[in-house]
């Protein structure tokens, strides 16, 4: 899979940028909501798709070095989560699509580069 910069990826998927740097490479995708499951399966550089939006998501994303978090189905983070994400340099997007739909779209753009 060819790495793709988050700004390119965000533009191609028309994601809503909530916070965090866009000059990072995404090289894979993982989806899941159970944090200790995600913790051991997300790889560094992965786009992590979830419907969990509480502050603990920022710790998991930061510790695993996920490229970014996409909150599916219009889920919005609270102010505390956004603040923590900024401190930990975690990039967060929000999008109306479901995790499945986002995976399909990401699969299409990440495989043909």
């Amino acid at each position: 899979m060819m790495p793709m910069k988050l700004n390119v990826l965000a533009e191609r998927l028309a994601l809503t940028h909530i916070c965090g740097e866009l000059d990072k490479d995404a090289s894979g995708v993982y989806t899941g909501d159970l944090l200790s499951w995600v913790m051991s399966h997300v790889e560094a550089g992965d786009v992590w798709i979830t419907i969990m939006s509480n502050i603990n998501v920022t710790a998991v994303a930061s510790l695993t070095e996920a490229a970014c978090v996409i909150l599916a189905e219009c889920v919005q983070p609270d102010e505390e989560t956004i603040q923590a994400a900024k401190e930990k340099n975690v990039t967060i997007f929000s999008d109306p699509r479901s995790a499945y739909q986002l995976c399909c779209c990401l699969g299409a753009i990440l495989s043909d580069g």
């Binding site: 159970l34 200790s36 051991s40 509480n54 603990n56 998501v57």
Partner: peptide
Amino acid sequence: LGFGAGMGLPNMKKY
């Protein structure tokens, strides 16, 4: 909040 998968202790052992 996303906890309770029952994977924490197994992860600690695994890693």
